[in-house]
Design a protein around this nucleic acid. Structure first.
Lengths: 191, 191
DNA sequence: CAGTCGATGTTGACACCGTCCACTCACGCG
DNA sequence: CGCGTGAGTGGACGGTGTCAACATCGACTG
């Protein structure tokens, strides 16, 4: 903002992340190009390389910012609560392409440590579920249920009338799974 | 059919699909290129256009073939059974990149009708669940659970010791969800 | 059996992309 | 005031998807 001497952009890094995210939502992952982002930021096609060593690094930064926003969205809710799950699903429905980028392959968390940190922080509210006493496998089930709904929504695999009410879906599915968890706790080892 | 005079390949279409699938498993979706597939099939970089109007069309054919194989894998099991679910998850674990291509975005089922047909046929064994009396939302829950586990496995998001036993995960998660469905049927409207 | 024709492959071209390189510009430090 | 360094520029290279024009083979026709 303040420093804009026409030659030096002033805040290119943030501008590129914003441009890349806009491209991501508009044209999907394959539609995000370094050159297009640079164009949108009003700089030459090579300027991004001063801030990101590769296209993948820019995408990792976009994903990390996404995790931060996801964490913020869940932050107002009780960790592990139904509200947190609803916020999670709402985020996925509102930013499908970003959600896919965050949880998809292609962005190795080993190659981008900042990504691992951001993801870990964002997932904490969900990990509270397994801390609440459920077995590890059962807790994975909750995450899988949530993630499965999120991905089905993000990829448009659900019938339209169902996709229109993501919160209701989450409510029913989580209530069902929760009832199953309680039943298993009451009568363990039943088959 | 059996015409292979060195100029005419004879079965280029199938060869390209096979090559693309090999590339997909080896280098991921972005690593699949028409030119590379053509190279692998021993033809010029433009020959694929005689069989597929675009790269996306080739990918759609690969995905359709994948659906056919998934259907075959589930075919030996009772529709809607636990075994069918295990076969589903086993397929996803065995061919992660292919599974992502099949269910990911970027392959519009409107643009590729054959894909829609193949997917519909493959999903029939799973739809048997909702036909078995569960509500639509609850049935979506089963698919979401399964799909969520599949995607988490395919994208390597699960801890290694959990990812090593996909069938056990499916068993626990599905048993839990099933118990919840039975509980909900016994005491509808509980909160 | 000669001639033609459509399906199949080839060669060449274009625009776009990610990335490497050498260069330039603006600013701050001595 | 000179100069070094980080930020941005311009050009180049190889790779890609795609279009257009051309070549070739096999089958059908007379």
């Amino acid at each position: 903002m303040s420093t804009s001497t026409a030659y030096h952009h002033g805040n290119l890094r943030a501008a590129l992340i914003a441009a890349a995210e806009a491209l991501l939502e508009k044209a999907g992952l394959e539609g995000v190009s370094l050159r297009e982002a640079a164009r949108a930021a009003g700089v030459s096609h090579n300027a991004p390389y001063r801030h990101f060593p590769s296209r993948e690094a820019l995408l990792a930064a976009v994903a990390a910012a996404g995790f931060a926003r996801l964490a913020a969205a869940m932050d107002t809710a009780e960790p592990g609560s139904r509200a947190a799950c609803r916020a999670y699903l709402g985020f996925a429905a509102a930013h499908p392409a970003l959600y896919r980028l965050m949880f998809g392959p292609g962005l190795s968390k080993d190659a981008h440590p900042e990504l691992r940190a951001a993801a870990g922080a964002a997932m904490r509210p969900l990990r509270a579920i397994s801390a609440a006493g459920a077995s590890r496998e059962a807790a994975v089930g909750v995450w899988a249920l949530l993630h499965g709904l999120a991905v089905l929504l993000a990829d448009g695999q659900l019938a339209d009338d169902l996709a229109a009410r993501p919160e209701e879906l989450a409510e029913v599915a989580l209530a069902t799974y929760g009832a199953g968890l309680r039943a298993a706790a009451a009568a363990p080892g039943s088959g």
